Lab assay of single mutants.
Amino acid sequence: GKMTGIVKWFNADKGFGFITPDDGSKDVFVHFSAIQNDGYKSLDEGQKVSFTIESGAKGPAAGNVTSL
C-alpha cells in the first residue's frame, strides 16, 4: 500500500536519492523515473512524499512517488 515519508536527499544530476519512511523502516532508494509529475522529475530534501515499495533489481525501491 501507500506509505509516506520525507526525502532524505536527492541528487538531481544523477537522478536518484533516498526517502526516509514515516514508519521508521529502512531508507528507500528512489529513482527519478518513479516520480509522478509532468514536469521536471526531481525531489527536494525534506519534502514530504507518498510512495509504494516496488522490488527492483537492486532491492526495494520507491514507486508512484507523489509530493504531498
Score class of each variant (00 low, 15 high):
residue 1 G to R: 08
residue 1 G to W: 06
residue 2 K to G: 05
residue 2 K to V: 11
residue 2 K to F: 06
residue 2 K to S: 10
residue 3 M to V: 13
residue 3 M to G: 07
residue 3 M to F: 15
residue 3 M to W: 07
residue 3 M to C: 10
residue 4 T to W: 04
residue 4 T to E: 07
residue 4 T to F: 12
residue 5 G to S: 00
residue 5 G to F: 00
residue 5 G to W: 00
residue 6 I to P: 00
residue 6 I to Y: 11
residue 6 I to Q: 12
residue 6 I to E: 10
residue 7 V to Q: 00
residue 7 V to A: 02
residue 7 V to Y: 00
residue 7 V to T: 04
residue 8 K to E: 03
residue 8 K to M: 02
residue 8 K to H: 06
residue 8 K to N: 06
residue 8 K to D: 04
residue 8 K to R: 10
residue 9 W to Y: 09
residue 9 W to A: 08
residue 9 W to K: 08
residue 9 W to F: 13
residue 9 W to C: 13
residue 9 W to P: 01
residue 10 F to C: 02
residue 11 N to F: 04
residue 11 N to A: 09
residue 12 A to Y: 09
residue 12 A to P: 14
residue 12 A to D: 13
residue 13 D to S: 15
residue 14 K to L: 09
residue 14 K to G: 07
residue 15 G to R: 07
residue 15 G to T: 02
residue 15 G to L: 02
residue 15 G to Q: 06
residue 15 G to A: 03
residue 16 F to S: 05
residue 16 F to I: 09
residue 16 F to V: 09
residue 17 G to Y: 03
residue 17 G to V: 03
residue 18 F to V: 07
residue 18 F to E: 08
residue 18 F to I: 05
residue 18 F to R: 05
residue 18 F to H: 04
residue 19 I to M: 02
residue 19 I to C: 01
residue 19 I to V: 05
residue 19 I to E: 01
residue 20 T to L: 11
residue 20 T to I: 12
residue 21 P to I: 01
residue 21 P to F: 00
residue 21 P to C: 05
residue 21 P to K: 01
residue 21 P to H: 00
residue 22 D to M: 06
residue 22 D to R: 04
residue 23 D to H: 10
residue 23 D to A: 06
residue 23 D to Y: 05
residue 23 D to W: 05
residue 26 K to Q: 14
residue 26 K to G: 12
residue 26 K to I: 07
residue 26 K to V: 12
residue 27 D to P: 09
residue 27 D to F: 00
residue 27 D to T: 04
residue 27 D to S: 04
residue 27 D to E: 11
residue 27 D to Q: 05
residue 28 V to G: 01
residue 29 F to I: 06
residue 30 V to R: 01
residue 30 V to K: 01
residue 30 V to S: 02
residue 30 V to Q: 02
residue 30 V to M: 06
residue 30 V to P: 01
residue 31 H to E: 09
residue 31 H to W: 02
residue 31 H to A: 05
residue 31 H to N: 06
residue 31 H to G: 04
residue 32 F to Q: 12
residue 32 F to N: 12
residue 32 F to K: 15
residue 32 F to T: 13
residue 32 F to W: 15
residue 33 S to R: 08
residue 33 S to Q: 06
residue 33 S to V: 03
residue 33 S to D: 06
residue 34 A to R: 10
residue 34 A to E: 10
residue 34 A to K: 12
residue 34 A to Y: 01
residue 35 I to S: 03
residue 35 I to R: 04
residue 35 I to E: 03
residue 36 Q to K: 15
residue 36 Q to L: 12
residue 37 N to E: 15
residue 37 N to S: 15
residue 38 D to G: 11
residue 39 G to K: 09
residue 39 G to R: 09
residue 39 G to W: 06
residue 39 G to F: 07
residue 39 G to S: 11
residue 40 Y to A: 13
residue 40 Y to R: 15
residue 41 K to I: 04
residue 41 K to C: 06
residue 41 K to T: 08
residue 42 S to R: 13
residue 42 S to L: 11
residue 42 S to D: 08
residue 43 L to S: 01
residue 43 L to C: 03
residue 43 L to K: 00
residue 43 L to E: 01
residue 44 D to I: 11
residue 44 D to P: 10
residue 44 D to F: 12
residue 45 E to L: 11
residue 45 E to N: 09
residue 45 E to D: 13
residue 45 E to Q: 15
residue 46 G to Q: 05
residue 47 Q to F: 03
residue 47 Q to R: 06
residue 48 K to P: 11
residue 48 K to C: 10
residue 48 K to T: 10
residue 49 V to G: 00
residue 49 V to D: 00
residue 49 V to P: 00
residue 49 V to H: 00
residue 49 V to I: 05
residue 50 S to K: 07
residue 50 S to T: 13
residue 51 F to S: 02
residue 51 F to L: 03
residue 51 F to V: 01
residue 52 T to C: 09
residue 52 T to M: 08
residue 52 T to L: 07
residue 53 I to Q: 07
residue 53 I to L: 14
residue 54 E to F: 14
residue 54 E to Y: 14
residue 54 E to N: 14
residue 55 S to Q: 12
residue 55 S to D: 10
residue 55 S to M: 15
residue 55 S to L: 14
residue 56 G to Y: 07
residue 56 G to P: 04
residue 56 G to V: 05
residue 56 G to K: 12
residue 56 G to C: 10
residue 57 A to S: 13
residue 57 A to I: 12
residue 57 A to N: 11
residue 57 A to W: 11
residue 58 K to M: 07
residue 58 K to N: 10
residue 59 G to P: 04
residue 59 G to S: 05
residue 59 G to N: 07
residue 59 G to D: 04
residue 60 P to I: 11
residue 60 P to C: 07
residue 60 P to G: 05
residue 60 P to K: 07
residue 61 A to R: 15
residue 61 A to F: 15
residue 61 A to I: 13
residue 61 A to N: 08
residue 61 A to T: 12
residue 62 A to N: 01
residue 62 A to Q: 00
residue 62 A to R: 02
residue 63 G to D: 10
residue 63 G to R: 15
residue 63 G to N: 13
residue 63 G to T: 14
residue 65 V to E: 02
residue 65 V to H: 01
residue 65 V to G: 01
residue 66 T to M: 14
residue 66 T to V: 14
residue 67 S to K: 14
residue 68 L to K: 05
residue 68 L to G: 07
residue 68 L to I: 14
